[in-house]
Design a protein around this nucleic acid. Structure first.
Lengths: 243, 243
DNA sequence: GCCAATAATGACTATTTGGTCACTCTTTTT
DNA sequence: AAAAAGAGTGACCAAATAGTCATTATTGGC
């Protein structure tokens, strides 16, 4: 946070020490422009893919000159990183929290609570940054090169956390003896695919029923139990059944 | 299949009517070259992504002149299509078969058989064309533009078939009352993520145990059953437990 | 060995692209 | 109000790129 120019030449000119720091007009305007660029870029990324969008495309869509882009971002990768930032923060924080909760879980209820909290974090990210989440989903499996590097990095972190969490739930002795690396990744895959369906507006019914369905699916499986005298009920949200 | 030039100018010059048809030297050489180009391209695609690879890259990697590329493929999209072809055929055929089998399934055993057959198809594709499967996994979620269009198309087909299959299994009354669009896509997501893990050599244990684990996960869920006096055993492959 | 058909080449053109910069316009500071 | 700092511009450059084509090399039929 110091003012002297960092190690890498003037590379950090983007978000650092640029505007007249106080909450003054310059700064507000600066934020606006940045947001406009990010919005325009995100729309294009979703339509054509990260690599299918040029700086010219972005600046044209945002109605600014090309040079303006470089005043705000060092390159396309930096823009993607900025786009990803809030989602990454929320998501990783949620995963950490879920991990700790699960490490302490000693009964099924605590386990449910932990997963419920995780679902809430995801839902929150989905509502606040649907475009970014979709960008993540569509790019996260690609090779970690160029502008996609940060997306792929986040994907690795998510996978590791997921396996870690499953490991913890596992040591609580509440789960079947399946390798955490397997069940964890399977759950990540299922969740991601369903999120993609929601965000791509594939016909998937009421999204509010998803957490419930997913929980049943993950925890109890797909097969109809032979006979169920037990009245065990589970619910992730108290929402109405079919609004 | 006729010989007169088709509707689109000389567009179909690639695989059609080019070499002295018989199994002669020309044709063999032609196949070789084509394969070399496809191999080189696939390697590059996996390393840098579809959009990160140029025709020049491909021809250089295959040690041929640029013009040669266009003698074999109309453009990058056509090459991707050719690459995808065998996997697409096997996969779709397997999905059809599985769908029919499940439509007729009246008991859990028949259901297992259907899924087992599907797993065998996937495993076969994985062994014969690991690179192509990985390419599919890494690109299938992106926007359906340019060279990625055919990959995305296949992804749509897979999703539809999966939902369809789940629908059929559902009407057999063997599954929990979860929307087929949800459970089908969830399974696709889980399977895809695990395939990606296998192909990316993430540490996931013995791949031969995957079908078994996945079946347990999907059909019986993750949660440890409270008490299981029933000795019901299920197995997807008879392989050794831990070689 | 000879000729026609097919294959391979790489120089070439058109266009696109990332990135820069001298200059102008706007806001802040004095 | 004047100077300084920051923001915006778009022409410009060098490198990269898709696709073409006249030319040369190879092969198959005879």
């Amino acid at each position: 946070m110091s003012t002297r120019s960092g190690t890498r030449a003037d590379a950090a000119r983007a978000t650092d020490k640029r505007p007249g720091r106080p909450g003054s007009r310059r700064e507000a305007h600066r934020r606006e422009r940045m947001q406009e660029l990010e919005d325009a870029a995100l729309t294009l990324f979703l339509a054509r893919g990260l690599d299918g969008v040029t700086i010219d495309d972005i600046t044209q869509a945002a109605s600014v000159a090309k040079g303006t882009f470089y005043r705000y971002f060092e390159d396309k990768a930096a823009l993607v990183d900025a786009l990803l930032e809030p989602v990454r923060r929320e998501l990783l924080a949620g995963l950490e929290t879920c991990g700790h909760a699960l490490a302490d879980a000693r009964n099924v209820e605590a386990m449910f609570d932990a997963y419920r909290a995780m679902a809430a974090v995801i839902a929150s990210a989905l509502l606040q940054y649907p475009g970014v989440v979709r960008l993540y989903l569509q790019e996260c499996r690609g090779p970690a090169v160029g502008a996609r590097a940060k997306v792929a990095e986040l994907a690795r972190l998510v996978a590791r956390h997921a396996v870690d969490i499953t490991q913890k739930a596992h040591t609580s002795g509440l789960l079947r003896p399946i390798r955490p690396a397997v069940s964890g990744l399977a759950v990540v895959g299922a969740v991601e695919r369903l999120l993609l369906a929601v965000l791509s507006e594939e016909d998937i019914g009421n999204p509010l029923e998803l957490p419930d369905a997913l929980t049943t699916l993950v925890l109890d499986g797909l097969r109809l139990p032979p006979a169920e005298p037990r009245p065990g009920r589970r619910k992730l949200d108290g929402g109405p059944k079919r609004p």
